[in-house]
Design a binder for these strands. Sequence first.
DNA 1: TGATTTTTGTACGATCCCGCACAAAAATCG
DNA 2: CGATTTTTGTGCGGGATCGTACAAAAATCA
Lengths: 199, 199
Amino acid sequence: MRNDTKIAPRGRGRPRKFDREAALRAALQRFRTLGYANTSLDELAAATGVNRPSLYATFGDKKALYLAGLARTHAIIDSTFAALHDVHYPPEKMLKALFLGAIEGFLTGEYGPSGCIAVNTAAAEAVADADIRAALADFMQLQDGWIEKLMEQAGTADPRGDAQIASSVIHSLSTRARAGTPRAELIAIAKKATALLLA
Amino acid sequence: MRNDTKIAPRGRGRPRKFDREAALRAALQRFRTLGYANTSLDELAAATGVNRPSLYATFGDKKALYLAGLARTHAIIDSTFAALHDVHYPPEKMLKALFLGAIEGFLTGEYGPSGCIAVNTAAAEAVADADIRAALADFMQLQDGWIEKLMEQAGTADPRGDAQIASSVIHSLSTRARAGTPRAELIAIAKKATALLLA
DNA sequence: TGATTTTTGTACGATCCCGCACAAAAATCG
DNA sequence: CGATTTTTGTGCGGGATCGTACAAAAATCA
């Protein structure tokens, strides 16, 4: 069951037994499900198959691991938006892809729909922790900025404002998914938002 | 500095030294700032001025105290919406009151803007804890339902859909407030949402 | 083969945290 | 005043959690 994709041992010493990316993915999944404060290092060690000392040696402490996970998600979101921008969909198709893609992602999860890690776990820590708050702000900036570009491409009259509303709806879809709202209702909200934005 | 509003001792034994409501408010504030998992009972005891055994005797365990706080917020939100419904504002004024009232509430906080406790701390626990998930769902239902009534009163064509979008924007305003977004930008988003909904 | 380097994994210490036991305190009832 | 009832507050015990020390293991270099 271990994910031992021992790539590029290269150096001198004993080769690493685990794949850094796979471990990061597993840790990220635990954080997304349980939240930052509620995820212990024992659970992270169990989920990644890496014991604590190796986790510390590879990622630093708990917060560094969490921030590395956020950064990884940030990069994935970025390339996803870039791809959506590249295909040059017509406005309605673009919004459909945007919202439905988000919804399907949010409904993913180990124990149930887990939404967006930034919106729904980083936000809990954001007031007390400046680093996490900054990461959350970066995340929202990334999303707002990309959707603004998409709105420009779609030729709407107020790309910035339209993007902020579309982005806001996506935030809420994430929270609603975590609250257990069924897919059909999330899709209905997405359709309504699409109609309003294209009116 | 204690809030000793010893009301209605009534019974037989030693009178209670603290005001239940004041203690609940203080605990709620800590939960809202730090999140559920990150708030210890020592901090709750310090913030409320009540030591742990008395907290347990009065509210039960940590989760029961948190849920009592959510219920209190739920009740306040309910009466706030009822009041807004009663004044029969014209549509634009109603939306302005709705959004700006939310924003001002979200910008409140001990250490900084703390948003909505349900959207931003309950959501983190919602996947792992069914009780908190249910409370979060109730909360969203309350808000969606009231805004739907307000939209009916305002005479919009699709009260349910419009309400879900308005409610979604409010969720996002809460998260954005926690991320540190300045008031002016939150207000701009609210204005844009108002314009879209009344178009 | 022996030295060096890096990772592994056990084990540990210090701290925090939850929830409660128990005696003292402060009120009312008879 | 003595008995009863309820709250207070100290204090504790078991357990979780974080981060690290240290020796063994597994590789490369000379």
